[in-house]
Design a protein around this nucleic acid. Structure first.
Length: 429
RNA sequence: GUGACCGUAGCUCAGUCGGUUAGAGCGCCAGGUUGUGGCCCUGGAGGUCGGGGGUUCAAAUCCCCUCGGUCACCCCA
């Protein structure tokens, strides 16, 4: 073993080369998944944005939040000269950066989607990698609850388009600047008397970021939180109406959801609507996708005017786990239309030239590159499940007739060497 | 970052109490068929037993370290 991929990363191989015992899907499956995602995004009229993999560390630190786990301990960051770079751990902050940088707000609300890798220095486990892959969408410049619903609807549509049904939408409202401070204080007041019962991490969060305590998995803390004040009781009129509207519209669309007053998200920038799509069949990482509204992020990043925005992010690795659980295969295996078997150098030259002509017309043609025996070439054609095989040797070049065998039926037919390209195209395409 | 379990051929795995030449199935290559796939038969290639150190007459096997993998915690996609 010379070198191998870095911990928490993986190679994506074509279906034919893939080790089928590996949990990593083939590139054919990735391509198929991405195509389905793009089709849904396009139908919802979202346009693709591609931002760099590396961003200024400051952008992520400010945008995602210094106190988050992502920024405090999971960034792949480095310095060159006097610039600090980070491998992006998520894409929302970069999208907002691009929106502000290019003044995209001038053109009205922007509907953007992205597909690409992200990086977090966590210990890998099922459904979690150090280089992982996200797709997501953002609506920027729209305050209306319709934008929240547009995003949630889009997200659900993607999973439905995949053929998935075993998931659950959880939603909550985290309030806004007017309601959150009061709720924070109330929660702190409630928890302080129970300080002794709190875990170490929860204790440190009590003052810095008490909302994060809400999503604890600790049974004792969960029980304690049962009687804690609920944020819904603290929502201002506007946030309350916003949340009501979102729920009403989801109902109208027939999108099922459950309210979860303990749903908070680990990133600092969320306000009002927060949601998560979860599956209970993908191991400990049950969150397939998540998102919410983040009306404060743009100003946090230095914008003069606030930019109301809402979005979701989803993990490819978890999507594939869910697909495997529901035994859904996306990949459409592309088989060769024709395998040319060549015998001898003159025949090989003929085959190379005619394979090229066919390929230029979109026919999938393969041929032997190892100067193997006819038998070995036939075996290769069979292995690849080629639809047709034609053997080309001196005899065929002299007679001007080629035999094309249908490999599944065994039927054979003759085509003239002078017109193979046209005739095969009309037959096979 | 913490914990548990696991590293033997390309893949899945066997290998007894430490014992002399490390095996099987699948896959791959070749031949049986001097130019015809799948099935069958025969043969072949392929291993620093993850790496390093130690104990021992002797280590895949025991001990230490290290690297890697898996799952979980934390947290998130």
């Amino acid at each position: 073993m010379t070198y191998q991929n870095i911990k928490g990363t993986f190679d994506v191989l074509p279906d034919a080369a893939r080790d089928h015992s590996s949990p990593v899907p083939s590139s054919d499956e990735w391509i198929a998944a991405e195509a389905k995602i793009r089709a849904v995004m396009t139908a919802y009229r979202f346009g693709e944005i591609r931002t760099p993999i590396i961003e200024p560390t400051e952008l992520i630190a400010r945008g995602v939040g210094e106190l988050t786990d992502i920024v405090s301990k999971e960034m792949f960051a480095f310095t060159r000269g006097d610039t600090n770079y980070v491998m992006r751990p998520e894409v929302t902050a970069p999208v907002v950066r691009a929106y502000l940088q290019h003044n995209l707000g001038q053109g009205g609300p922007q509907k953007l989607y992205y597909i690409g890798p992200c990086f977090r220095a966590e210990r890998p486990q099922k459904g979690r990698y150090r280089q992982f892959h996200q797709f997501g969408a953002e609506v920027l410049g729209a305050v209306s609850p319709s934008a929240d619903v547009e995003i949630i609807s889009l997200m659900i549509s993607v999973y439905s388009a995949m053929g998935l049904s075993d998931f659950r939408l959880r939603i909550n409202s985290l309030g806004d600047e007017s309601s959150r401070p009061a709720y924070k204080a109330a929660l702190q007041d409630y928890l302080r008397p129970h300080y002794e019962k709190l875990s170490e991490t929860s204790r440190s969060r009590l003052e810095a970021n008490p909302l994060r305590i809400l999503d604890t998995k600790d049974p004792g803390e969960k029980a304690l939180l049962e009687n804690a004040p609920r944020i819904s009781e603290f929502l201002g009129d506007e946030s309350k109406r916003h949340f009501d509207d979102v729920r009403q519209m989801l109902d109208d669309l027939g999108i099922a959801f459950v309210e979860d007053p303990f749903l908070v998200r680990g990133l600092d920038y969320y306000t009002r609507t927060a949601f998560e799509l979860e599956s209970d069949k993908v191991g400990a990482q049950s969150a397939l996708a998540g998102g919410g509204r983040y009306d404060l992020l743009a100003t946090e990043l230095g914008a003069k005017d606030s930019v109301p925005a809402v979005g979701f992010a989803a993990g490819f690795e978890r999507l594939f786990l869910a697909l495997a659980e529901e035994q859904i295969s996306l990949s459409v295996r592309k088989l060769p239309d024709l395998f040319f078997v060549a015998r001898g150098e003159r025949a090989h030259n003929w085959v190379v030239a005619h394979a090229r002509q066919l390929r230029d017309r979109g026919v999938a043609v393969d041929l032997d590159l190892l100067e193997r025996s006819v038998k070995a070439q036939m075996r290769e054609a069979n292995r690849q499940a080629a639809r047709f095989v034609a053997v080309v040797g001196e005899d065929e070049l002299l007679s001007g007739e080629l035999v094309f065998r249908n490999m599944s039926t065994g039927e054979e037919l003759q085509l003239s060497t002078d017109h193979v390209v046209e005739e095969f195209c009309s037959m096979a395409l």
